[in-house]
Design a protein around this nucleic acid. Structure first.
Length: 330
DNA sequence: GGCCAGGGGATTA
DNA sequence: TAATCCCATGGC
């Protein structure tokens, strides 16, 4: 046990050794979560299940792509077994990403590059309710503003769970709380037309008693998707993100503006041909469609900011290696 | 299936 | 100052 006055409450350390394919920036900045913030030391702090947490990664100096994951949190502070199990699942540590990257990169030079650039991405297993509401907020919206809306939701309707460096911390609001609100009550969160979706979806989840969310992992993907699509403000994109980022449905392939650009430029598809993109993903990425999507999403966004010229060349003849196998040395 | 409003704010022209 | 863009959906 250790107590740090700069952090919230009594924090406990959880350590995982020998972790490969792990990078905090790749994980927390790839758009799958909205409440983690980079700290000056490169670690990330956030609120998980109503508890403060800080995650850092210490690379092994002698070995490539191996390191130690360290978590400081007061979540499940008194139960080491459950705590370790929780974080192992949350950070998806039991999945072999080295193997997945190898499978995905075969005969696909863009995926090879993407998996190299975002090699430390792990698909988190987040709280289902929070992920559902967060991705309704995300629709037709940009990441900084999504984060602002979610923080406002937590500030106005979550629980105060202490403070960090003088800043109060808040849990994500419960189903019970949001389900009794009307769209007008969410005005201060600047959700725009999404406020009504959130109030109505919260009511629908409360009516269901959260039963479907609880059973989600055990449900067939099709059946689960059908339920999610029945919720107000949830279309195919939001449903797929919720299934991927909180329900272990790694085969789903969320298609957004950026994915359409990738599929258009690299795989030569019409940017309107959504079903064609889904078919392509199912055929070529199979059970890892969602992980492939994360590599591609991360890659194209990074490329556009870091190397606009390369972004413009993407998919053109001059951009392609002469043989697919050459891609592996890029 | 195509079209377009829904909010709001940041960025670009 | 105006136009455009943003991890879309719902309704027509």
């Amino acid at each position: 046990m250790s107590s740090d006055p700069n952090r919230s409450g009594c924090l406990v350390e959880t350590v995982f050794d020998e972790v490969a394919d792990f990078d905090t920036e790749d994980i927390f900045e790839c758009g799958q979560c909205f409440r983690w913030r980079r700290q000056p030391d490169g670690s990330y702090s956030g609120i998980v299940e109503g508890s403060f947490a800080n995650v850092s990664y210490v690379p092994d100096e002698k070995r490539d792509n191996i390191g130690q994951v360290k978590i400081w949190s007061n979540l499940l502070a008194s139960d080491e077994d459950r705590r370790e199990k929780y974080w192992r699942n949350y950070l998806d540590l039991d999945r072999d990403y080295t193997k997945i990257k190898r499978i995905l990169s075969t005969e696909d030079y863009i995926m090879t590059r993407a998996a190299r650039i975002g090699g430390g991405i792990r698909v988190l297993n987040q709280n289902k309710w929070e992920t559902l509401i967060s991705f309704i907020v995300s629709q037709n919206n940009n990441i900084p503003r999504i984060q602002g809306c979610i923080e406002a939701l937590c500030r106005e309707h979550g629980r105060n769970i202490g403070s960090l460096k003088g800043e109060p911390l808040y849990s994500f609001p419960s189903v019970e709380r949001l389900s009794v609100l009307r769209a007008e009550d969410l005005g201060s969160c600047r959700l725009g037309y999404r406020a009504k979706y959130i109030a109505d979806t919260a009511r629908a989840i409360a009516m269901d008693g959260g039963k479907t969310l609880t059973a989600a992992e055990q449900m067939p993907t099709d059946e689960l998707e059908e339920y999610l699509l029945s919720l107000p403000g949830v279309g195919p994109k939001v449903a797929n993100c919720v299934m991927l980022f909180s329900m272990k449905k790694t085969e789903v392939f969320p298609i957004d503006v950026w994915m359409r650009r990738v599929m258009g430029r690299v795989y030569g598809m019409s940017e309107r041909n959504m079903s064609g993109m889904r078919d392509y993903a199912a055929r070529n990425f199979g059970e890892y469609g969602g992980i492939a999507q994360q590599y591609l999403f991360n890659y194209i966004r990074k490329l556009k900011t870091d190397n606009p010229a390369a972004y413009e060349r993407l998919g053109l003849e001059e951009d392609r290696p002469e043989r697919e196998s050459d891609a592996r040395t890029i």
